[in-house]
Structure formats: structure tokens, C-alpha cells
Design a protein around this nucleic acid. Structure first.
Lengths: 262, 262
DNA sequence: CGGTTGCTTGAGATCCATCAATAGGAGTGG
DNA sequence: CCACTCCTATTGATGGATCTCAAGCAACCG
């Protein structure tokens, strides 16, 4: 009962990648048996590299980052509830990067064998896992585009748009906005900027009337305008199931709540 | 005979990921049966998205790029001979990005079924494919670090170091340097800079005595100095096989990966 | 409370982009 | 073989975007 509730965002997210059954839901809940709390700013399993567990975020936000010799930090991935902590759970960890909690975080450690068994036993779960991998890779790639070819304000706006969609998927955002759980310094390390400049970019977005911030609550007043500014095209997130997979795997089922491109 | 020769860089590269047998070599050669020539600047199979072929570069250099609505281009991946044209050949193509040849290019179109069959039939090939996927992902991730936290000259230097290692692997570079087949404009779209600034960064590297350029030939005069400047740490390329992955894990998980999603 | 962390703003310096012009090389057609 | 064009490389001048350094303020927390 309690277990099933913590695995809820995981299931909710994967539902967007394939039509999952109640049995699938139970399997996912079973994968989340081993739950661990991680304090904010603490590394997650960076030394557990050899162990055969795939971290799944259940609560809180986390990231993968890399430190350079000159002391600079680049966050190479952001993880929110429901996320498999890396696109390659079935591969060895990136040896040169570290996972860390950005907020107090609850993670499940799923045995890789159990994940593999789950994928083998259920075609729909298999499809959902591949969808998740594709989505994670697309997010990484789009971040590359941001860092290479978007201005500071555009990057911030794009991040907000991306998070809006990702949080909608797991029911942690609505049309008004969402809770933004990371600091401006974290955002700067994610977007290749300084925290000072992230702050100035936020000011621009605020003054343009696109968003506003009250504490940790990000309010989006003009989603279209924000996406316009960010050059945000939600198709890269592969939420339109009918176009994302090979025709054979496409089934007609009602769109679960969220529609792409609204 | 001829076929085997064009697949040579493919085999040479994968050899670094696992100990391959003569039989493996033959299998790889068979995967490269369907060869196609692509002219410089032409898109590769961008409309072939539905078709179940994995492009493999045999000669020349190619890239994956994305165009933004404001006309800017970001190259999100660079491919050289021996490269599988995307890390996720087994997944649907990234719908929003395009593959293009940067030079006259010879590519093989390997049937996905044949690739899957090859991975199933040979544990060593399976290990090599996973190694390739891991390496490709690490390269992408390191580019993210470059775009976020390295200066222009550092980015250029880092690209040169990365290409040096990648070309060494396939025998197309030596300690002196290698043929740099892309233009400064291509480099700028890869590194998030303008071509003018790439040119100025090159000038710095030349004046520092680290490199020199004669036509398309890049000569590296001080590899240590270049790597130092670039904050280049070759471990991310996973060339030390002994630390990269235990055979047992490949056995257990490899089968799952390549069978899923078919 | 005092200390810490995160947010905000200012002023000046640096990095990089933009615009512009020149030159060389490769290919092409006359 | 030459004239022409296109593409790439190169360099200068200038402006803009972002960084750095610095200070003040608010919120939180032991």
C-alpha cells in the first residue's frame, strides 16, 4: 500500500510511453521495494558503481554532474520523480560523473536483474522503458542545442518549458505553474551560465510578464509566449505516442490527460 | 574481399571494446553489405526514418544536427569511419534532427534485424556494441560539458584531443596529427561558436605552438600541452577495457537490450 | 540571535558575436 | 587556359552578451 504510493510518479510517467496494465503497475511497484532517503546535496551511490542497482527517483530532484579540474561544475542531467536515474541503467555508470540529490530525495534502488526480468515479462513495460530512454536522450540532446545556440534568457525559458511538460506528466504541474525545487546556482550549472546572469535572465522573464516567482512557486502567465521565446518545440519529448513508435506498436487509446502542444 | 576492406574501420574500432574473433569480423563485414555513397552536405536517410536500417560510416565524416526556427544550427554529433550513425540504432530516429554528410561519405546500411541477430549470436560482439554505445554517450556528455563550461579555445582544443583519440583507434591518426576533414564553420556549429571565433581560437592554438595547420592536415606539436589546455581527460572514452565492464554483466543484460523494441 | 545560504543589484572587464572586407583555392564553363 | 563564381579562411573594428567582483538584503536554522 505504502510502496505502491511512492512508486506512483514512476508508473504515471511510464504510462505516457505505453499502455500499462494493472499487472505492469504492480511490477513497477515491486521494483521500488528498496527505498532510500538522501539528504540534499548528497551524492547518490557514486561509489556504488559496481553494484547492480538502478536508482529511480520517487521524491525530490536530483542531478548528474561533472567537475572540471579548474573547479567548474556542469550538470549534465536533471532528474525528477519518476525518472530512471540515468538513461543507461543497464550499462555501467559514467565513471567520471556523479549523481547528487538537489533536494531531500527519496530514491528506489531497483535490482538490474529485476528490471531486466520486468522488461522480458511484459511487452508494454518493455515499450515504456524504451520510450523513457528515448525521451531522456532527447532531453540531453536538446540541452546541447540550448548550450550551443540559445541565449541566456532563452535557455532559462526553455528549461522552464521542459520542466513544465515533464512535471505535467507526473501530475506535479498545472497550467498555472509548478514548484521549482532547484536554486539559481543549480540552474546556472545546468545551463552553462553564472548564477548572477541566471538571476538577470529571470528578471527579464518576469518583466516581460511571462512568468513570476513567489518563493519556490513558478507561475507561468503566458505559456505560448514563453515557448516562443525559448524556441521550444515539445515534439522532442515524444509525447504524441502515435508518431513516436513504429506503427506496429501503436495502439489507439485515449490520451491520458495531457496533450502535447497545448 | 572488397567488402571486407570497406568494413575495416568498423571492425578496428569495435576491437577496442571487446576481443573479437575472425568470425565476428566476418559478421561485421556481412553487416556492411549494402553500401551507399553520399555527397558532401547531403542529408543521410533523414526521410528514411521508418526504415529499419542502421547507418554505419565507412568513409568520410558525417554529423547529426538540428536547425532552430531562428536559423541557427547546432551539430549534436560527429561521426567518423567505424561509427554507428547514432547511439540508438535500435530505437526510432530522433524525429527532429537530421543526419548529413560533412564530406563525401560512404555508408553501410545494416538491417536492424541483422544487427540484433549478430548481437545475439556473438557475446563478444554484444559486448563491443554496448561499449560503442557507452562511448558514444560519453562523447555526447563531454560535449555538453564543453559547451557549458569551457572557453572557445578550450573547446577547440578539446575537440582536437577527442578526434585524435577517436582517429587513432581506427588508424587514421598518428602522434604527429591527422586529416581534419571539416570546415571551421562545421566546427563552430558543433562547439556553439561563430566560425570567426573558431578561426581566432585556432590562431591562439597556433601561436602557442600547440598545433599547426597545413591545408587539411592538423599537426599536433604538444599533445600534453593541448590536453592540458583543453582539460582533456581521456578516461571518458572508455578505452581501458579492463575497467569498463565485467563480462558477466554483459551476458546478463546484453540480451535484454538488443531484443527489446523489435 | 549569529551564521549560513540564496537572491538581487551595480559597475567594470572580458569574451564572443556581428559586420565588413580581403584573399586564396577549387571547381566550372567558355 | 582564363575568367568567373563560390566557398573557406583570415583579419579588423565595433558592439553586445556574459562574467567577475562586490555589496546588501531576506529567509531560514541551529
Amino acid at each position: 500500500m505504502q510502496i505502491r504510493s511512492v512508486s506512483e510518479p514512476f508508473f504515471t510517467k511510464l504510462q505516457h510511453g505505453a499502455s500499462l496494465t494493472l499487472n505492469d503497475k504492480q511490477i513497477l511497484a515491486d521494483l521500488c521495494k528498496h527505498v532510500r532517503d538522501v539528504k540534499s546535496q548528497r551524492d547518490i551511490a557514486s561509489q556504488d558503481r559496481a553494484c547492480r542497482y538502478l536508482p529511480i527517483i520517487l521524491e525530490g530532484w536530483a542531478c548528474r554532474y561533472r567537475l572540471l579540474e579548474n573547479g567548474k561544475r556542469q550538470i549534465t542531467g536533471l532528474f525528477i520523480p519518476g525518472d530512471l536515474c540515468e538513461p543507461f541503467g543497464i550499462l555501467p555508470r559514467f565513471p567520471d560523473s556523479t549523481f547528487a540529490a538537489l533536494t531531500p530525495t527519496k530514491i528506489a534502488l531497483a535490482s538490474l536483474d529485476a528490471v531486466a526480468a520486468a522488461a522480458r515479462s511484459s511487452p508494454s513495460l518493455r515499450e515504456a522503458f524504451w520510450w523513457d530512454l528515448l525521451m531522456a536522450s532527447s532531453i540531453d540532446q536538446e540541452r546541447l542545442v540550448s548550450l550551443g545556440r540559445r541565449s541566456a534568457a532563452e535557455r532559462v525559458a526553455h528549461l522552464f518549458c521542459e520542466l513544465h511538460v515533464r512535471l505535467m506528466i507526473i501530475g506535479q504541474a498545472d497550467n498555472e505553474g509548478y514548484e521549482l525545487l532547484i536554486t539559481q546556482t543549480d540552474m546556472s550549472d545546468m545551463l552553462g551560465l553564472t548564477s548572477v546572469h541566471v538571476n538577470r535572465s529571470l528578471k527579464i522573464l518576469r518583466e516581460t510578464g511571462l512568468i513570476s516567482l513567489k518563493g519556490r512557486r513558478l507561475m507561468i502567465h503566458d505559456l505560448v509566449g514563453l515557448r516562443d521565446l525559448a524556441l521550444f518545440d515539445p515534439t522532442y519529448l515524444h509525447l504524441d505516442r502515435s508518431t513516436s513508435r513504429s506503427p506496429a506498436t501503436v495502439e489507439a487509446e485515449g490520451a491520458q490527460g495531457y496533450e502535447v502542444g497545448t
